[in-house]
């Protein structure tokens, strides 16, 4: 009891929990569709592009979250264009965009003269430095992402699973795909604040593939993925606080633990 009161006496920890909870809800929601589309890597690719956005923001003196959203959305559109024209396989584009984003970020940082410690926190997350303003921005973006997902759930389902049939069902596939890209880009921008660019993909994908091993049904596994992500964030944060470890890393490790437990459960079924 003594321990928990200590944890929540700090406002920064309360803010961290709020940010973590919001992120734990949207990351697996979007991640589920990424897994269906075999585009799990896109989150990682966009997160490195997000670093370019951060560097750009720091360089120009604009709120990095804004430049991050802009760069990720634009890149997501470019990925979608190349993917839908099938000139290059989705996976290879991502393999190019991932280092590309990182390289551009490094160049921008060099121009700005040296490594900014600020940027380091974006690499590995800085959940404990989340400000009240950040919380509000994250909250509004998350509300937007969830509403769009609820509103167009059927269209997203159909398009993700079977693009051609979706088209012959009168669904504006191109529009839905682009909308989905916007949602991914926004999610990446938001999640980055919490677990950092290097670990975004983990929080969006690991809870989903854990849940998909044990659940029967897409909606059911989406639901369980959110619970796993929430547990990962909460346990990870508490562990990071008491063991004095980086929160992003402990969160991801707990989610990997959930994957191992899920594999074990599946084997015994």
């Amino acid at each position: 009891m003594q321990i928990t009161t200590n944890l929540f006496q700090y406002e920064f920890m309360i803010r961290a929990f709020w940010a973590g909870i919001i992120v734990a809800i949207i990351a697996p929601l979007i991640g589920s569709f990424l897994v269906v589309r075999r585009l799990s890597l896109i989150a990682d690719a966009l997160s490195h592009v997000a670093l370019t956005g951060v560097a750009l923001g720091l360089l120009l003196g604009i709120n990095p979250l804004i430049t991050t959203i802009l760069t990720t959305v634009v890149t997501a559109f470019i990925i979608e264009e190349i993917r839908s024209n099938r000139q290059v396989s989705g996976e290879s584009i991502l393999a190019m965009i991932l280092p590309g984003g990182l390289a551009l970020a490094l160049i921008l940082i060099s121009i700005a003269n040296g490594f900014n410690t600020n940027l380091f926190t974006y690499l590995f997350g800085s959940i404990t430095t989340v400000t009240n303003q950040d919380i509000w921005i994250i909250f509004v973006l998350a509300a937007f992402i969830i509403s769009i997902l609820l509103l167009f759930y059927r269209q997203f389902m159909y398009t993700s699973f079977d693009e051609e049939s979706a088209r012959t069902s009168g669904i504006p596939v191109r529009l839905i795909n682009h909308l989905f890209m916007v949602l991914i880009a926004l999610t990446v921008s938001v999640v980055m604040k919490v677990v950092g660019a290097l670990l975004i993909g983990a929080l969006m994908v690991i809870p989903v593939i854990s849940a998909m091993q044990i659940m029967r049904g897409f909606k059911a596994s989406m639901f369980v993925a959110i619970i796993i992500a929430l547990l990962s964030v909460l346990v990870g944060l508490i562990a990071s606080y008491y063991a004095n470890l980086p929160a992003g890393a402990t969160i991801v490790m707990v989610s990997i633990l959930s994957f191992i437990v899920a594999s074990f459960l599946k084997k015994n079924n």
Binding site: V35, V36, R38, R154, M157, Y158, F161, D162, E164, S165, A166, T168, S169, G170, M212, M215, R216, G217, F218, K219, A220, S221
Partner: peptide
């Protein structure tokens, strides 16, 4: 488009990695 039903080549193969139920497949249509 409601007048046309289409069943693509190898329709089922692409979803083998996701636990989707028959009911959920049906629900893709209104």
């Amino acid at each position: 488009w409601d007048k046309i039903g289409y069943i693509p080549q190898k329709a089922g193969l692409s979803v083998s990695h996701v636990p989707i139920t028959v009911d959920e497949v049906m629900r893709m249509e209104k």
